[in-house]
Simulated assay, not measured.
Amino acid sequence: MDATSGTLDEALERLHATGPEFRGFLSNHGPMAVEALVRHGQAGTVHRWLDVYTSQLEEVPSTQGALTDANWQEALGDPRRVTDWTAYMARQVAERPWRAVLAEWWPRLLPGIAGAATHPVIRVGHAVRTLLEEGEEGPRIAELAHALGYWAARHTTLPVSVRPRGTASPTTALAALPHVADQQTSVVKGLAQLPGTEGWLTAAEALRAPQDPEDAYDRLTALVAATTHRYLDYGHGEAVLLVHAATAPNAVLRTLPALPRDLWAPSLAAAWTASAALTSVYSPDEPLPAPTAGTLTPEEVFERAAAHGDAHAIKLTDTALDVAARTADGDDRALAAALRSLELITPGVD
């Protein structure tokens, strides 16, 4: 990643002058997409991409009232307070090391991982990856504050609580999940069907429980690979929302190295629950035919994603490259899943 050119920090500063949502409820994907573009050698495209993307964004929402250590609980999950939350988190990271702030707030926010269709936790994952690997410049720490503030404002608990206790691998467990009755619906209405979906909790809890923090890390790594591979076959059920079944657990995986180890197993459980829920709400019954084998390199695949322009496709490709990098000889199915997203998602900066 070229973190020395200043492109990422410039892009983040531009985006911090906009709100975290637009058109009423759509998430601002800009910070996540530009981080991925810079990381994968596409820094030269960032400002042109932003010129188009920011034209649809909205101003930072008005403040409602200052949050403090004494009153933040009353504002948890209140999207009207998002600017108050951002200011509060900005003060937190200004007064203490960002890792300490993250460790304190992660267990508070984790039960609300489903908020805004998991976009806030994904935004946190991109921010943490940069801080861990590329340096702690001011705009990057500010981005973590924005991401945590957005998560707090959109904090939404799932209507089900899952504790993995079985023996199944992520691939097997995902395949066994029953689907909700009405898949032609919103995320909120889809998730609300889970408690009444026969056999869902039993199937979700069939995932093998981790034995220790390292095992939790390995289980989460396997989950990211399984959900990425599954997109290749079933992404057509809901091309955009099923992206999150892979990118949300990958965001959690990216964050684990910055967290105390005793938070790793609960993080796996939350990430699995979110991925399982989205799979049941939107995964279709029948897979797509296997694509024709290709010979593109990871770099070429990401170049295609950057040219495609859609933020979800960029982020899924970013995750697919992570999966491929963890395999000694690459991972053709992960790269094919990324290419599938370019077919299923409408091209353009949106």
Rank of each mutant, 00 (worst) to 15 (best):
E214L: 12
P210N: 06
H229C: 05
L223H: 02
E205V: 13
A222D: 14
G237Q: 04
Q211C: 02
V188P: 00
L201V: 15
A209Q: 13
E198M: 10
E198Q: 14
H229P: 04
Y234N: 02
G190N: 03
T197W: 11
G196Q: 13
A209V: 02
E198K: 14
V187R: 01
P210Q: 07
T228V: 15
A216T: 12
A222Y: 03
H236T: 05
G196T: 03
L201K: 14
A209K: 09
D215W: 10
R208T: 12
D218Q: 13
D218A: 15
E214M: 09
G235A: 05
A216M: 07
W200R: 07
V187F: 10
A225C: 05
A192G: 00
T221C: 11
L223T: 14
V224I: 11
A203N: 08
G237Y: 03
D233N: 07
V187A: 10
R208W: 05
R230T: 11
V188Y: 03
Y234I: 10
P213Y: 04
G235N: 06
G237H: 01
T202P: 00
P210R: 06
T221V: 02
P210C: 04
P213L: 02
A203T: 14
L223P: 00
A192F: 05
A226V: 04
G196V: 01
A204G: 08
R208E: 12
G237R: 03
H229D: 14
H229Q: 08
A209F: 01
V188N: 01
W200A: 06
H229S: 08
G237L: 01
A216V: 12
D218E: 14
T228Y: 03
V187K: 02
G199M: 11
L232N: 01
P210T: 09
D233P: 00
Y234G: 04
P195Q: 06
T202H: 13
D212M: 03
T228N: 09
A222H: 09
D215K: 08
Y217S: 10
P195R: 07
A209N: 02
L207C: 11
D215C: 08
E205T: 15
